[in-house]
Design a protein around this nucleic acid. Structure first.
Lengths: 195, 195
DNA sequence: ATGGTTTTTTAGTTCCCACTACATAAACAT
DNA sequence: ATGTTTATGTAGTGGGAACTAAAAAACCAT
């Protein structure tokens, strides 16, 4: 059987370009012409490879979380829960207002409100934020079991609090806050930890 | 001189309807046909009264802040800074996931990322979030002066922290968090206060 | 080389967006 | 009543959105 014409672009490179656009403009704000021109391909190639705009976004999101999720695991892997949270929040604060990348976490900025037609995307973003919160909660549960946190600690509530601070840092980063300001926020937030 | 045909709709009522739509769908996600049909008027009436979509949004935003700003003043007016922050955060937590209104603060949800053509709106939203942060800072400065906070307190940093928590609460509310969960977040956040 | 398979290119499609020209209607001043 | 002014309803405008039909191109197997 014949193999057909080979793809002329690299899927992962194209996804990275798409990711940049979606990250900066959000799901609804990114137009197909911006996406295709950033990716260096024409619409039919995009549709053949990714289905539609929504499919492309989900793939770009996967790629985003591959990277960011790795950093999160790294932070959570710190030996003590205090250091883990320090890393988590401080890295978030500095990564989210770096030059060269859009400010704020994409899971927050890419779509909180929007038209009916993109509600599935908003749900997906909320689901992934929730998943990230769950990972933090698991880290707190482990710490509690290991005696790294007092027995009366509520891991779920503490995880939601840390998540809220990170989300808040994203909002402020998107609004133009400086790295120093966000690091102060992270520092204050850590005072809640009973460690 | 003649007075002309009187307006057949109430501007404030129309703004409230527009506000609902913008709050739920964001600036870009709200279409003119949704807006006009919610407001019960036809496009020419809208343009005559408010200029364009951007003008309408700004007026709706003014109305939003009239209400929410009042509640904020009320909270900040509490005698002690601790009570002030308790009210601020707890009210935010419960108001932001009420049935009958969109979840999350509109200043956060209506637009964090988007196309070039709506960048002025995003700047405006960021400016207003910043203004709200400044009011909190002023309250901390007063508390410091009154001896309600220790002398080594950094009012600006503390205000940004509280703002970040509120913004994070908005993100979680938009994502479907429950009132109880958000109130736990508020409660934990308050532990940072040295009072 | 030829046929089969898949991708790319070109050039559109339809639809909905924000916005408006124009004629009509409703008020007041004279 | 008539003219002036402003608001309204009808019916559109041009433009950009997401998406695609069809032909040409690039590969492999025989």
């Amino acid at each position: 059987m014949a193999m057909g014409r080979p793809r002329a672009f690299d899927v992962d490179e194209a996804l990275d370009k798409a990711l940049s656009v979606f990250w900066e403009k959000g799901y609804e704000g990114a137009s197909l012409s911006e996406l295709t021109s950033a990716m260096g391909i024409k619409p039919p190639s995009l549709y053949a490879a990714f289905g539609n705009k929504e499919g492309l976004f989900r793939r770009a999101l996967d790629r985003y979380e591959e990277v960011k999720g790795g950093l999160m695991d790294e932070a959570l892997a710190a030996p003590g829960v205090r250091q883990a949270m320090e890393q988590l929040l401080c890295h978030a604060a500095s990564l989210q207002c770096e030059k060269g990348a859009p400010h704020g976490c994409m899971l927050v900025t890419a779509g909180l409100a929007g038209g009916e037609e993109s509600s599935a995307i908003r749900d997906e973003l909320a689901r992934r934020r929730q998943a990230s919160c769950t990972r933090i909660r698991k880290r707190f549960e482990r710490a509690k079991k290991e005696g790294d946190l007092p027995g009366d600690t509520n891991p779920a509530a503490l995880a939601r609090y840390v998540t809220a601070v990170m989300n808040g840092i994203s909002v402020q980063a998107a609004g133009g806050a400086t790295k120093k300001e966000l690091q102060q926020v992270a520092e204050m937030a850590l005072k809640v930890l009973p460690v």
